[in-house]
Structure formats: structure tokens, C-alpha cells
Amino acid sequence: MWKRIDHQLKIKAGDGPQAGQFKELGPGRETAVPHPLSLSEFQTVPVFEDISQHVKEVGDQLVKKVNAIFQLDITKDGKTVHQWTIDLKNGSGDTYLGPARLPADTIFTIPEPVFMELILGKMNPQKAFLAGKFKVSGKVLLGQKLERVFKDWAKW
């Protein structure tokens, strides 16, 4: 037979911490993503803003063709300095700063200089990936669809 047990706490006056029992906390830990004011120092920010504008204009078509969410973790000295999400799966598409709000299909971890070379067409994405210049997790083959989006953006 099951027996119900009441787990509510019974708090009485005077049960709280006594004077002198509090410890002063130091500053919080810094997050991997820098404060937005420091984003101006990165070359990738204007590129993503431009891609965002492109997605706003032709997002409906891109969602039909791509149907995927990409998260790009941009790194510097081996640490993630900012993240961008290109959502070409929901609604009419969206590009925004920060991690994917819904589970990303593919996550790229890529140093900023490598990303800039790829986006400008100075480096072949497949060769760069095989050479270990960046990492991909999730559905790796969807990267080819993202490459086409970038090529489409470059023509735009």
C-alpha cells in the first residue's frame, strides 16, 4: 500500500540565518560570449549582419531549399568569442547573434580568420574541413547547403 508523505517544510520564526552568517560573493564568472560592445572588433560581425539582411529578403526561398538550423561558433585563440545562428528551417528564416534557440542541425566551430577566408571564397570548405581548419558536429553534409547559401549571398 502506498503512503503519502507531506514534504512541505515547516518554517518557524527565527529559523533563518543569523547575523554574520552571510558570505560576500565575488564577481560572477565571465561568459564565453563577449559583451556586445566588443563585437565591433570582429570582422565577422558585418558579414553576419549582411547575411541577416539577405535572409530577411529571400528567407522564404532559402527555407524551402535548405530546411536546417546552423550554429556557428566563432573562435579566437581556441575559445568561442561569439556565436551566430542561421535558422533556415522555421518561418521565413532568421539570423541572430547567440546560440540556436531550437536544436541546431549542424554546429560549426571555426576560427574567425578561417571563416573570413571561406566566406570570401579564398579557401575551399571541403579541403579546409579535411585539413582540420574547423570542426563540424551534427549533420555534416548540411554544410554543403550552407556553402550554397553563402555563395548566393556573395552574388547578392
Rank of each mutant, 00 (worst) to 15 (best):
M1G: 15
M1K: 12
W2P: 15
W2Y: 14
W2L: 14
W2T: 14
Q8S: 15
Q8C: 10
L9V: 12
K10V: 13
I11D: 00
G14T: 04
D15W: 07
D15G: 01
D15R: 02
G16T: 10
P17H: 11
Q18K: 15
Q18N: 11
Q21H: 11
E24Q: 12
P27S: 11
G28P: 15
R29E: 13
E30Q: 12
E30L: 13
A32R: 10
V33L: 10
P36M: 11
P36W: 12
P36I: 14
P36A: 11
S40H: 11
S40R: 14
E41Y: 07
F42I: 09
F42S: 11
T44W: 04
V45P: 08
V47N: 07
F48R: 04
S52E: 13
H54W: 05
V55T: 02
E57N: 08
D60C: 03
Q61V: 13
K64Q: 14
K65A: 14
V66E: 06
N67T: 05
I69S: 01
I69M: 03
F70R: 05
F70S: 03
F70K: 06
F70P: 03
Q71D: 03
Q71C: 06
D73V: 06
T75G: 01
T75H: 02
D77I: 02
G78C: 03
G78D: 03
T80Y: 00
H82R: 11
W84T: 09
W84F: 15
I86E: 04
D87A: 04
L88Y: 05
L88M: 06
L88V: 05
L88S: 06
K89G: 02
N90Y: 12
S92P: 00
G93M: 01
G93K: 03
Y96G: 10
L97C: 08
G98M: 12
G98V: 13
A104Y: 02
I107A: 02
P111K: 04
P113E: 08
P113M: 07
V114N: 04
V114D: 04
F115P: 00
M116A: 04
I119R: 08
I119E: 09
G121F: 08
K122S: 08
N124L: 08
P125H: 07
Q126K: 13
K127Y: 05
A128H: 10
A128N: 07
A128R: 09
L130M: 15
A131M: 08
G132C: 00
G132M: 00
K133W: 01
K133S: 03
K133C: 01
K135P: 00
V136W: 02
V136S: 04
V136H: 02
V136C: 04
S137W: 00
S137A: 08
G138A: 07
V140Q: 15
L142D: 14
L142Q: 14
G143I: 02
G143F: 05
G143A: 05
Q144M: 14
K145I: 02
L146P: 01
L146T: 01
D152C: 01
W156C: 01
W156S: 12
